[in-house]
């Protein structure tokens, strides 16, 4: 049986396996389950990158009309991912450091690392350098909501803090506590 790829209205190219009904069932066999889960992780991260989505919740599989409809459902073959399976996939992603439970200490919502925090750190520093913000103090808001759209626009604060933390270790940034919130100062090096 041959399956074909499909382009969604948002312009995302779905893999051909997304048209295979067994792909949506949680397999009891460990080998087949791991194989399908790997493809799911690839698909989720690619779609998140395509739509700049930072969060995935178990509820996204339970309800419809959210950002993830195109991926978690396939109306052409009448299949969708059950919340239980999605939670399992999320667990595997966290294990592989491709996501983090956000907030911590629960397993029903994750922050997706379609770029790893290290990559975000580099992006952040490059952006600061290229926009001439070195050695000046900036608020988190300045970073996440710059007047000119940047690669960092709408990045979650939790992820931003993680990236700044990585820069701090190599002395390329400094976290500053201000009276009404937090700030950051970037150094060249």
């Amino acid at each position: 049986m041959a399956f074909t790829t499909h382009t969604t209205p948002s312009g995302f190219l779905l893999p051909s396996i997304h048209s295979a009904p067994p792909f949506f069932s949680q397999q009891p066999n460990k080998t087949t389950l791991a194989s399908f889960t790997d493809h799911w992780i690839k698909l989720i991260l690619a779609y998140a990158r395509h739509r700049r989505l930072f969060y995935l919740h178990v509820e996204d599989a339970e309800t419809s009309g959210n950002d993830w409809d195109e991926v978690l459902k396939n109306e052409r073959i009448n299949r969708h991912v059950l919340p239980v399976y999605l939670e399992h996939i999320m667990g595997v992603m966290v294990e592989k450091n491709l996501a983090a439970f956000e907030p911590a200490r629960q397993t029903r919502s994750v922050m997706l690392y379609w770029r790893l925090p290290e990559e975000w750190a580099e992006t952040l520093h490059e952006w600061a350098t290229s926009t001439g913000h070195l050695n000046t103090i900036m608020t988190f808001y300045d970073v996440t909501d710059p007047p000119i759209e940047s690669p960092l626009s709408s990045i979650p604060v939790a992820l931003l803090r993680k990236a700044i933390g990585i820069l701090t270790k190599t002395n390329r940034a400094q976290l500053i506590a201000a009276a009404d919130g937090e700030g950051v100062r970037f150094f060249s090096k």
Binding site: R79, H80, V81
Partner: peptide
């Protein structure tokens, strides 16, 4: 259990 077949559960239907 051998991984020779996989299942498509109709419980996943929309």
């Amino acid at each position: 259990a051998d991984g020779q077949v996989c299942r498509d559960d109709e419980a996943c239907a929309l």
